[in-house]
């Protein structure tokens, strides 16, 4: 294994919550208030996931009193305590930037009922027939 990759893996969280694009999530992140730390929750829709390895970041969008708010969370940051998936979304693209131009009901994303979010390529399916 490439040593740089190995170093990244060592600094990464051993397990990151499994979430994907279009999911409605609650991001639990630590904020400092004076000397104390407490957890704040940012709930919104994951509209993009960028980067690989330790550089992976998720863009989460929510509406706050009629105004769109987007926050970028580094997935492996120690300040991200947890990411809870409220509802899985069924989406057909990797970046949901189009919802920035939509309002109200149009921004809803269909819930994903059990089907794998992104079907793996046919090649990997053949490689692992035991899964089916």
């Amino acid at each position: 294994m490439n040593i740089l990759h190995q170093i990244e893996v060592e600094h990464m969280k051993p397990k990151v919550p499994d979430f994907g694009i279009g999911d409605r999530v609650d991001v639990h992140y630590l904020i400092k208030e004076g000397d104390k730390e407490r957890i704040q929750i940012f709930s919104g829709t994951v509209i993009a996931i960028q980067g690989r390895g330790i550089r992976r970041v998720a863009k989460v969008r929510r509406m706050v009193s009629g105004e769109g708010v987007e926050r970028i969370f580094p997935v492996h940051s120690p300040r991200i305590a947890d990411v809870k998936v409220r509802e899985k979304g069924k989406v057909r693209r990797a970046k949901l930037y189009y919802i920035r131009d939509l309002e109200g009901k149009a921004t809803r994303i269909k819930p994903n009922m059990g089907k794998p979010r992104f079907p793996r390529s046919t090649r990997s399916k053949k490689a692992a027939p035991a899964a089916t």
């Binding site: 740089l4 170093i7 330790i54 580094p74």
Partner: peptide, 21 residues
């Protein structure tokens, strides 16, 4: 020079690092 990546400090700050053997 082996390359660059980033690591997080305990307080959550992200540090851009070059890894040198």
């Amino acid at each position: 020079k082996l390359g660059m990546t980033q690591i997080f400090k305990d307080d959550g700050t992200c540090v851009p690092v070059t890894i040198v053997q």
